[in-house]
Amino acid sequence: MQYTTGKDAFYAGVRALLPAAPGVIPFGLVTGVTAIEQGLSPLTSIGMTVLFFAGAAQMAALQLLRNDAFPLVIIVTALVINLRFLMYSASMAPHFARLPKRWKWPLSYVLSDQAYVLSILKFTDGKSALYGHYFYAGAGISMWLTWQLAVMAGVFLGAEIPASWSLDFAIPLVFLALLVPSVRNSACLGAACVGGVVAVLAMDMAYNLGLLLASVCGIGTGLLVEHVQRGRPGRALSPAPGDAAPEEKAAGENATGDKAP
């Protein structure tokens, strides 16, 4: 669609973001509840949410705080999880190249998975180039608001939830909900299996370094599988998304099975 004014494009961005909200709100609620259960004050929890504006990194940091991890490990882990923003930044950069700094900095701050995915489609269709950054701003700012309000609601609910509800289990469940769709091909599957198994084996490593070691091993495995597949002609590099998922289930069982006492 062609936008004639910046305002039109901005509101189109807001409307495009709305369908994503039901997926974001429960994640935000759980993040807020987890922060309070971790013993953070409401103000610190909200400050953390504003500073991070990255759900998975925030959840990982909270889990590491629970395990009394070394602060440097928490910082590095959170930044590794956020490395994907480098990719988004590189992909958005040409479309923002002519904007002044007073646009670039705030637009960078609200860069999120959702705002990126929605806007890059607009930018690449070529028609909305003139007001594309307004569309992105609409999607990005409404995503920011949705996230902050959801976490805040979780923060104020948090105190009311009894420990017998085992709500700490919500953390791995949220990660699981993000993990399964991220396994798009066999190289990703290899990365996930090795990452998971190494993390279990390295659970007792000092300062929770196991998580970083596991991530590096997983990424290495992904690259290796990709390399091996390239060497074999006639084999599809990326099978259909549906193909990888049942393997992931079985592999998950194997991964835990290996570790049975």
Binding site: L176, L179, A192, A214, G218, G222
Partner: peptide, 28 residues
């Protein structure tokens, strides 16, 4: 400019990090 190998490696960050976060807290 992002080196090509780093660019490819980034594709495997979500799967490996998320699996490393999930499995230990599920089995332990």
């Amino acid at each position: 400019r992002l080196p090509a190998v780093l660019n490819r490696a980034l594709a495997y960050v979500p799967a490996s990090v998320l699996a490393a976060l999930v499995l230990p807290s599920v089995v332990n």
